[in-house]
């Protein structure tokens, strides 16, 4: 189900002295099955944008089409949209509230009005997808470790069986292994289900390693949009707005400046390694 964002504008407190333009004239096409990285520094509009995609915020002007339908139409079912476009907020473990893990994951599908059997089936499937073992199902979510809580919270959204999954910095606050595990999980989900994924991230290394396409936001507008290599080739512009390319891009740049015959478009460690090996003639 593709999403089309058409001339979207969002202005908070319009007409007052405190007017803030959160989004200005956003136009995007998000086709099925893409793995997209959304980057931008704090306040660049990326949080606003993702909340528009599932109808949590209403645009000041412009519109969003989901599967060809205008989500701002009066008789459009926003609740249904939210089940199709799943949104995992930052620190999603802060929304856990049920007495045990399983009931918490049931909350979403239950809100969709499914039968008890379907609800439980979906919850079970979702918990398995994020790799939670049965032994945890009847524990209080508050007794789990940070990384486990986050998986449960992600399962809570997966149980809605969305076609598009948006994750707002799913690795924030986790240790390096925890970060790899969550990102690996998302990659696996995408490969297995063909879901569209939009990953909001601050880590250029993560984005470079996993996504097919990068959208860079700045000051409420789309600044760059393309495959990682092309976007990171603009590393100077990225720096100007408080972002950066992955560390390896700079390493390659510096090597070239000091006389190595290397290309500078590597964005991951593996690419950089291969390029250096090639330059060394091995």
């Amino acid at each position: 189900m593709p999403i089309i964002v058409d001339h979207l504008n969002c202005i908070y407190e319009a007409g007052t002295a405190m007017e803030v333009v959160a989004l200005s004239d956003i136009n995007l096409v998000i086709p099925d099955g893409q793995f997209i990285g959304l980057i931008g520094h704090t306040g660049s509009g990326k949080s606003s944008l993702i909340q528009h995609l599932n109808g949590l915020i209403k645009a000041s002007s412009g519109t969003v089409y989901f599967n060809g339908e205008d989500i701002y139409d009066e008789d459009y079912d926003l609740k249904k949209l939210r089940s199709k476009v799943g949104l995992v907020f930052q620190y999603p473990e802060h929304q856990l509230f049920e007495v045990d893990v399983f009931s918490d994951v049931c909350y979403g599908p239950k809100n969709l009005g499914l039968s008890k059997k379907d609800v439980e089936l979906r919850a079970y499937k979702a918990l398995k997808m994020v790799g939670m073992d049965d032994e945890y199902f009847y524990q209080s979510p508050f007794d789990l470790s940070g990384g486990q809580k986050r998986r449960v919270a992600i399962a809570g959204v997966l149980a809605m069986e969305p076609e598009v999954l948006i994750l707002d910095e799913p690795t924030a606050g986790l240790d390096p292994k925890g970060r790899d595990e969550i990102l690996g999980l998302i990659k696996k989900l995408q490969a297995e289900t063909g879901m569209t994924i939009i990953l909001v991230s601050h880590s250029m290394e993560d984005v470079a390693n996993y996504v097919d396409r990068i959208i860079v936001m700045n000051g409420g507008s789309v600044m760059l949009d393309g495959v990682p290599k092309d976007v990171f080739a603009h590393y100077k512009e990225l720096e100007e707005v408080g972002l950066a390319a992955p560390a390896v891009t700079y390493i390659m740049q510096q090597m070239k400046e000091q006389g190595f015959d290397v290309g500078t478009d590597a964005t991951t460690i593996a690419e950089a390694r291969d390029e250096i090996l090639r330059a060394l003639g091995r």
Binding site: Q51, N54, L56, K79, R82, S83, G86, L87, V88, F89, P92, H94, Q95, Y107, G108, P109, K110, N111, L112, G156, V157, M160
Partner: peptide, 16 residues
């Protein structure tokens, strides 16, 4: 602000 955030997070899970 936190209330607003949790509210939206639950709405994303179909809360009404």
């Amino acid at each position: 602000e936190e209330t607003d955030k949790i509210m939206k997070a639950q709405m994303a899970r179909g809360a009404d």
